[in-house]
């Protein structure tokens, strides 16, 4: 469903993330915090990574050089919450036949509505980031462990797709609280994702990309006239040239790390690349 925005208001919120890969230590706290916050199911064997559900996943990348010139960097990957070339043209939203995943023009968050999803998995095929996971089985919590489930997020059943929601339930709670307190806006500290909150290195910064007062917009410096491409020379987005217009910005001083964010020809310079021109 397309939501139209009125023109006399300031721009809607556009929640996004900036992840400093030079600070990220690859500890995995974000993955665990996310799983605990969102009632993510677990199995005895989680080593088949195609079947292991991890809304937030930390990838390990290397520069491919030999000892002792080898380097390692970790890259946390939540759902990238693509806006596409027109707001709402996320790869997954475009293909969902059940409107089980939708783009919120108010927040820029790509939702996933489990009760609508009938498990066709088109969205998983469409997602360039492997951010979506399918529940092949009903989740099973060992006896007693269901006590740790949070009522804020419904446990998913077999046959549906799930993914990172930028902890949307936290936004809802913060919005309700702001409304009850007669405030118009949700403050930066009032809505933070579980991963950003848990990151011990302070590598993940979350907030409204459209709000210049939020740290994330100061770091990511998105150019609103160029598909929110970052103006920060340290920053890049994953597979930016697909035109997915994602809301997760990565930062690194290292050239090889920035280059790992997309597929480049051997002699290509990442900083010179631009997203594809929009077609009429």
């Amino acid at each position: 469903m397309k939501q139209t925005q009125t023109h006399n208001q300031k721009p809607p919120q556009r929640y996004g993330m900036a992840i400093d890969l030079d600070k990220c230590t690859g500890c995995g706290a974000c993955m665990v915090a996310c799983s605990a916050e969102n009632n993510v199911p677990f199995k005895e064997d989680e080593t088949n990574k195609l079947l292991s559900i991890t809304w937030m996943k930390v990838f390990r990348i290397t520069n491919g050089r030999e000892f002792p010139h080898a380097e390692v960097c970790y890259l946390p990957r939540p759902c990238q919450h693509c806006a596409g070339q027109h707001e709402g043209h996320s790869p997954c939203v475009s293909v969902c036949p059940a409107t089980a995943t939708d783009y919120s023009a108010q927040t820029g968050i790509v939702s996933q509505i489990y009760t609508r999803c009938f498990g066709c998995r088109y969205c998983m095929g469409a997602c360039p980031y492997h951010a979506r996971y399918f529940n092949w089985w009903d989740p099973v919590w060992p006896v007693g462990m269901e006590k740790s489930l949070s009522p804020n997020v419904s446990p998913r059943m077999r046959g549906v797709v799930e993914k990172c929601s930028f902890c949307f339930h936290r936004y809802q709670l913060a919005r309700d609280k702001a409304y009850a307190e007669d405030k118009r806006e949700v403050g930066e500290a009032e809505y933070q994702t579980a991963c950003a909150q848990a990151c011990p290195a302070g590598a993940i910064v979350f907030g409204d990309l459209n709000n210049p007062e939020h740290a994330v917009s100061r770091i990511a410096q998105p150019d609103r006239h160029d598909h929110y491409k970052s103006q920060n020379p340290r920053a890049f987005r994953l597979l930016e040239r697909l035109g997915t217009n994602t809301k997760v910005y990565y930062l690194s001083d290292r050239e090889w790390v920035r280059k790992a964010g997309d597929n480049y020809l051997a002699d290509e310079n990442p900083s010179a690349s631009t997203p594809p021109k929009e077609h009429a």
Binding site: A29, V32, P142, M145, S148, P200
Partner: peptide, 17 residues
């Protein structure tokens, strides 16, 4: 206010099998 993976998953020890 960050925490490590073990500290974050302590409830799985409390309620675990």
């Amino acid at each position: 206010g960050g925490l490590c993976p073990l500290g974050l998953s302590g409830l799985q020890l409390l309620y675990g099998p």
